[in-house]
């Protein structure tokens, strides 16, 4: 009697989680996104002639950096878009692979719900950053992307692995720090989208997926 009821309770817990959260999100997609972001940051770094004080507010206003930045911004946006697309494709690839291994459907209601809740704040953030570019407030673009990305993760965390919440909080803190200490846009980008993703992805892989691979 007792073991049967316990089993029932466990099944209930399992069903509640499986039906309401998107659990196929792979840690490896975080790691790959992080690596791609670091490469993208390195490209930008070389392009800017190793000038890591990029977006420095003083030079921006007083030393004629404004003109130069406007020419460079096109290349940097292109770089960012390529990084985003590559990171997304890698994420989709690893997540699909994990879903197949776990015999779960990739594209179901939980996936849809997670993506909708991720993309509402993310789209708002994207539009806001375009507005910043439009007003030539370049030095706040990098921190703003991090803040909105963090908020999006926080929102999506209710519909996928709950751990993603902490990644979101870290991105928000980093973005706020970056908006205060301006001029480190490229570095906080590299930390936020590169290093944090790799750390988080590795942690998730160790926590949820390693045993799965070993068991295979």
């Amino acid at each position: 009697m007792k073991s049967e009821q316990l089993e029932n309770l466990n099944e209930i817990r399992n069903l509640m989680e499986k039906s309401s959260r998107f659990l196929s999100l792979s840690g490896l997609s975080g790691v790959s996104a992080g690596i791609i972001a670091l490469v993208g940051a390195a490209v930008a770094f070389f392009y800017l002639d190793f000038d890591q004080r990029y977006f420095d507010i003083n030079r921006y206003f007083y030393n004629g950096m404004h003109q130069r930045l406007q020419q460079q911004i096109g290349f940097l946006v292109l770089d960012a878009v390529i990084v985003l697309l590559m990171a997304l494709s890698a994420g989709v690839y690893f997540t699909t692979r994990k879903a197949k291994r776990k015999n779960l459907q990739v594209w179901d209601n939980t996936a849809k719900r997670m993506l909708v809740n991720l993309f509402i704040p993310l789209t708002a953030g994207g539009i806001f950053c375009l507005i910043l570019l439009y007003h030539h407030v370049f030095f706040l673009v990098a921190p703003a992307t991090l803040i909105f990305y963090g908020l999006s993760l926080l929102n999506a965390s209710k519909y996928t692995l709950p751990d993603i919440r902490y990644l979101g909080i870290c991105e928000i803190v980093l973005g706020l720090a970056g908006s205060f200490f301006v001029g480190y846009g490229l570095i906080i980008w590299a930390i936020g989208f590169g290093v944090l993703h790799i750390v988080y992805g590795t942690a998730m892989y160790m926590k949820y997926e390693r045993e799965m691979v070993v068991n295979k």
Binding site: E11, I12, L15, M16, S19
Partner: peptide
């Protein structure tokens, strides 16, 4: 029990989703 647990955490669920889950 399974049907009820799925419906407790989802606003609504369709037949096929329930079938697959259970």
């Amino acid at each position: 029990m399974g049907i009820m647990s799925v419906l407790m955490v989802n606003d609504y669920v369709d037949f096929n989703t329930l079938k697959e889950l259970l």
